[in-house]
Design a protein around this nucleic acid. Structure first.
Lengths: 352, 352
DNA sequence: TTGTACGCGTTATCAC
DNA sequence: GTGATAACGCGTACAA
């Protein structure tokens, strides 16, 4: 044996490799390689194939994906970059992506930016270093260095949920403008006039579209949002929603009739803040969200929101990625998935 | 140039490699490798180091992690296997793990079993094929082939949340027995006697410990759970909780005073099912959960449950993994993190 | 149908 | 301190 000297603590079992299978079955290892890899069906004699396969499974041969990747320049792994997996919008996207890519042998590398702009670029670089075959970016900003970096490196990118300003990035999005305009229209038609809005940083297409959706609906009814009825959050969390709502309530002597929140987590925070201030929802003040994350029908009061088909978006993104992987020359396409209005108890109808 | 003939559609930019940096800076590529890698600080002349570094950054050199992995037999990647990322217990664990391992350059490969037992073993094999340096298994069953496979392959494994029957697997767990016993004791001391329980498959230590915790508390008070007050769920979802609760309510003419649910999602399903049957919670029936996932304080009624320090468990698991990675001979250790009782509105105090 | 030989981009171990 | 060279395990053009 030409094995390296084994230390006493050699825990890691020596992996059986192609040449082991080869010598055990009396053929050259290149033959083993051909037998074991799909796509060489008819080109090998059946008896040899059978013997090799038997020996391979007996020895418990598992191909070394790293060596294979080095040779083929494809790792069959893809990256998914999100702000924070603890935000409930991301898990359905992950499982949607996984459901279409895992059957093709792809593994998913998950990275959280923690809302950091440097972290995002850093993650792309680290994933590029690992030669991921493609990257799903769910943190895409309107102008995003990470997107440029992927283009520059030639790494297939599919933007999920969001889109760049140019619109030239392959993307699967929710139609946030439509959703928020519809929701706002409903709110106005319910008799609300004094409307407050909590918006997110406008460098994200989702945040921008939602805010534009609100404004479009209001304009159409001759309304607008005065400065003291506008609040901002930096990230999507209940705490941020609570903070922003308190700021909103402190900004004017009389509280607004309704607060339109950029998403559900913010809305939940808003409900908390209103309670803290002694306001009943929706008797004293109405509140709406966006996304329809799990449990929004179970909270008190049940949240009126816009339902996004997150898993479906994830699946569509996965399918789009597979297309780009097999045909890198495909022009960038953007797919928009329409959401649905979900009306529950958190919005009061002033007309009744 | 000795480049291979470029097709018109050569999207993937040719990566700059060590030899490119080398020829551009007039040194041998092995020297470049030494310069760029930490651990060779003083062993290289400053002027060469400086020049090489300059050239490297100018050319935008990024090390090829795959090639490096092939040589070093370490991918600096680890796997995390969960039932389903959509279960809110897992994201905090992921971010806990990531927070301690990412700074050391580790990337996380996430795999969902979808509650499949074959899928679990399959995931381990696929991850082993990718030469992950270690695996976090959150789906560990009391007797688990995936654990054995890891041992057999010599892959460092840290079990998260659960433990094997032998207890000889490195693990970071919640003290489920303590938590459920404390919760049940509280319920009994609130005057409840007719207690129903929804339990999960007993091949998971979490499910087993929780059920044993319930029984221990009841035995101590001379109580037990009759067969018609016991229901089973196969997985952790609201739908399953709803189904099990309906079975429970149909199993006897009079409904129980309280339903102790194996976890929060089941409890939320139980609340739904009770409402469907016209039962008010907690006026007509009390309900408890376990885990204290997000929003459990916001639902109607706020859920009494047991708070698990999930992120802390994830961090501890990450730290434990780093230990095993640097010292594979470390004996298996199990760390238990104590949870906290969280009493809210879903449990009625019958003594008042 | 099967064997030969080279290369994927690093790291490690020699010399010098 | 630096250069040359051999692996790491696999895939594949080419020869046989």
């Amino acid at each position: 044996m030409s094995n390296p000297p084994k230390s006493v603590s050699e825990k890691r079992a020596r992996r059986v490799k192609l040449s082991d299978v080869a010598s055990a079955s009396g053929v050259h290892y290149s033959t083993v390689s051909r037998v074991l890899r799909p796509g060489f069906k008819g080109r090998i004699s059946d008896d040899v194939a059978e013997r090799v396969r038997a020996v391979a499974s007996e020895l418990g041969y598992q191909p070394n994906a790293v060596a294979s990747s080095l040779r083929t320049q494809s790792t069959r792994s893809i990256g998914l970059i999100v702000h924070d997996m603890n935000d409930p919008v991301y898990p359905p996207i992950l499982s949607g992506i996984e459901s279409v890519m895992s059957p093709d042998g792809y593994a998913v590398l998950v990275g959280n930016t923690g809302y950091g702009v440097d972290a995002e670029l850093d993650l792309v670089n680290r994933m590029a270093s690992r030669l991921v075959d493609g990257i799903f970016l769910a943190t895409t900003r309107l102008k995003d260095p990470a997107v440029e970096r992927c283009e520059q490196l030639g790494i297939p990118l599919v933007s999920v949920l969001r889109q760049t300003a140019s619109g030239h990035t392959p993307a699967v999005m929710n139609d946030c403008f439509w959703g928020m305009e519809a929701l706002t229209t409903h709110i106005i038609e319910s008799g609300h006039r004094d409307i407050a809005v909590i918006i997110a940083p406008q460098d994200l297409s989702t945040a921008q579209e939602r805010w534009q959706g609100v404004q479009a609906a209001m304009n159409k009814h001759g309304l607008s949002v005065p400065k003291h009825r506008l609040a901002h959050v930096d990230r999507m969390s209940m705490d941020e929603g609570e903070r922003a709502t308190k700021a909103l309530l402190a900004a004017a002597p009389v509280s607004p009739e309704v607060i339109i929140c950029v998403n559900d987590l913010i809305a939940v925070g808003a409900i908390r803040a209103c309670r803290d201030r002694g306001l009943r929802v929706p008797t004293d003040i109405s509140i709406s969200g966006y996304n329809d994350i799990p449990l929004m029908d179970m909270i008190d009061p049940p949240l009126s929101t816009v339902h996004i088909h997150l898993r479906q978006i994830g699946k569509a993104a996965g399918e789009m990625m597979l297309e780009y992987l097999s045909n890198p020359d495909l022009p960038a396409q953007t797919k928009r998935v329409k959401p649905e209005l979900v009306l529950r108890g958190s919005l009061r109808d002033l007309k009744r």
